[in-house]
Simulated scan of single mutants.
Amino acid sequence: MHTLPALRAGALALACVLAPAAHANGTIELLTGIPRLACEATLCLSSSLRPGECSPSLDHYFGIKKFNKRGLDWSATVAARRAFLSECPASGEDGMAQRIDAISHGAGKCDAEYLNSSYSGTAYKWRERGYSYAGDNAEPVYEVHSLRTVTLTQLPAYCVVYNDHAWTYELSIQYVGRPAMGGYWIKSEDYDAAQAKWEAEHTGQWASGWNFSLTDPRHRSND
């Protein structure tokens, strides 16, 4: 796991658990099996930097799924994943219980890809192009373009805990743009460039004379 960055004192304690242990009789004992996978998963899920060494532990972690008659049982899945991470010998250290709880609730559900997919929606860019007449009734005629957008602009509480934990390294994400004009989530390290690009593509002449909304104006006029 040497390719991972130092994740502050708490995560360093996990790294020590993974290292060879020399005994008085000269033998060396390596942590193996589920305890090792649990420690590695805790380290890997505490950073967005995940080298190839993370694959076995992450495959095991995300492979833990519990189902009920309606499909995936998220509460049971969280509990089972928490139990797996608790197999790491360092799980009893100060602060580790909170860290494991934050990971089990947030890992896999707080990155930009997941949020953009789970909260995707449609926005509308539109303007009136005139009126149509039926007898004495005049109805506006709209030119409408649909826009792919992400409606969630604030992180869920469990993501705030996961991303802001003192031992987390570079997991933060930010929201680019506005929901009614094609907003989306992106890693914080890429935010400035993405926001500047969004503003260049969604303001000025592109937006001049147009209205934007999360509801189709043609449906609204028929309410």
Rank of each mutant, 00 (worst) to 15 (best):
residue 80 A to L: 01
residue 80 A to Q: 11
residue 81 R to I: 03
residue 82 R to A: 14
residue 83 A to G: 03
residue 83 A to D: 13
residue 84 F to M: 14
residue 84 F to K: 14
residue 84 F to P: 13
residue 85 L to E: 06
residue 85 L to C: 11
residue 85 L to S: 04
residue 87 E to H: 08
residue 87 E to D: 06
residue 87 E to V: 04
residue 88 C to D: 09
residue 88 C to H: 05
residue 88 C to T: 06
residue 89 P to F: 05
residue 89 P to M: 07
residue 92 G to H: 05
residue 92 G to L: 02
residue 94 D to I: 04
residue 94 D to V: 09
residue 95 G to L: 11
residue 95 G to N: 10
residue 96 M to K: 05
residue 97 A to R: 11
residue 98 Q to H: 13
residue 99 R to M: 10
residue 99 R to N: 05
residue 99 R to V: 07
residue 99 R to H: 14
residue 100 I to V: 15
residue 100 I to M: 08
residue 100 I to H: 01
residue 101 D to Q: 14
residue 104 S to K: 02
residue 104 S to C: 08
residue 104 S to H: 05
residue 104 S to A: 15
residue 106 G to E: 07
residue 107 A to K: 01
residue 107 A to R: 04
residue 108 G to I: 12
residue 108 G to D: 04
residue 109 K to F: 14
residue 109 K to C: 07
residue 111 D to K: 03
residue 111 D to A: 00
residue 111 D to I: 00
residue 112 A to N: 09
residue 112 A to T: 10
residue 112 A to R: 09
residue 113 E to D: 13
residue 114 Y to F: 14
residue 114 Y to V: 01
residue 114 Y to Q: 09
residue 114 Y to C: 04
residue 115 L to Y: 00
residue 115 L to S: 03
residue 116 N to I: 00
residue 118 S to A: 15
residue 118 S to H: 14
residue 119 Y to L: 08
residue 120 S to F: 06
residue 120 S to N: 08
residue 120 S to D: 05
residue 123 A to P: 11
residue 123 A to C: 01
residue 123 A to W: 05
residue 126 W to P: 00
residue 127 R to A: 06
residue 127 R to L: 07
residue 128 E to Y: 01
residue 128 E to H: 04
residue 129 R to H: 02
residue 129 R to W: 02
residue 129 R to C: 04
residue 130 G to R: 06
residue 130 G to H: 02
residue 130 G to E: 02
residue 131 Y to L: 08
residue 131 Y to Q: 12
residue 134 A to N: 14
residue 135 G to Y: 01
residue 136 D to E: 13
residue 136 D to H: 13
residue 140 P to T: 10
residue 140 P to D: 12
residue 141 V to C: 00
residue 141 V to D: 06
residue 142 Y to I: 05
residue 142 Y to A: 11
residue 144 V to S: 03
residue 145 H to T: 06
residue 146 S to A: 12
residue 146 S to C: 02
residue 147 L to A: 01
residue 147 L to T: 06
residue 147 L to Y: 06
residue 148 R to E: 14
residue 148 R to G: 14
residue 149 T to Y: 02
residue 150 V to E: 00
residue 151 T to C: 06
residue 152 L to V: 08
residue 153 T to I: 07
residue 153 T to S: 03
residue 154 Q to S: 15
residue 154 Q to P: 03
residue 155 L to T: 07
residue 155 L to I: 06
residue 156 P to Y: 02
residue 156 P to H: 02
residue 156 P to M: 03
residue 157 A to I: 08
residue 157 A to Y: 04
residue 159 C to P: 01
residue 159 C to Q: 01
residue 159 C to S: 01
residue 161 V to T: 09
residue 161 V to K: 09
residue 162 Y to L: 08
residue 162 Y to A: 10
residue 163 N to P: 01
residue 164 D to V: 04
residue 164 D to S: 11
residue 165 H to K: 09
residue 167 W to D: 15
residue 168 T to Y: 08
residue 170 E to A: 13
residue 170 E to W: 12
residue 171 L to T: 13
residue 171 L to C: 10
residue 172 S to Q: 15
residue 173 I to F: 03
residue 175 Y to L: 10
residue 176 V to W: 11
residue 177 G to W: 03
residue 177 G to S: 07
residue 178 R to Y: 07
residue 180 A to P: 00
residue 181 M to E: 15
residue 181 M to C: 13
residue 181 M to F: 13
residue 182 G to Q: 05
residue 182 G to T: 03
residue 183 G to S: 02
residue 183 G to L: 03
residue 184 Y to I: 04
residue 185 W to M: 12
residue 185 W to G: 07
residue 185 W to S: 08
residue 188 S to Q: 15
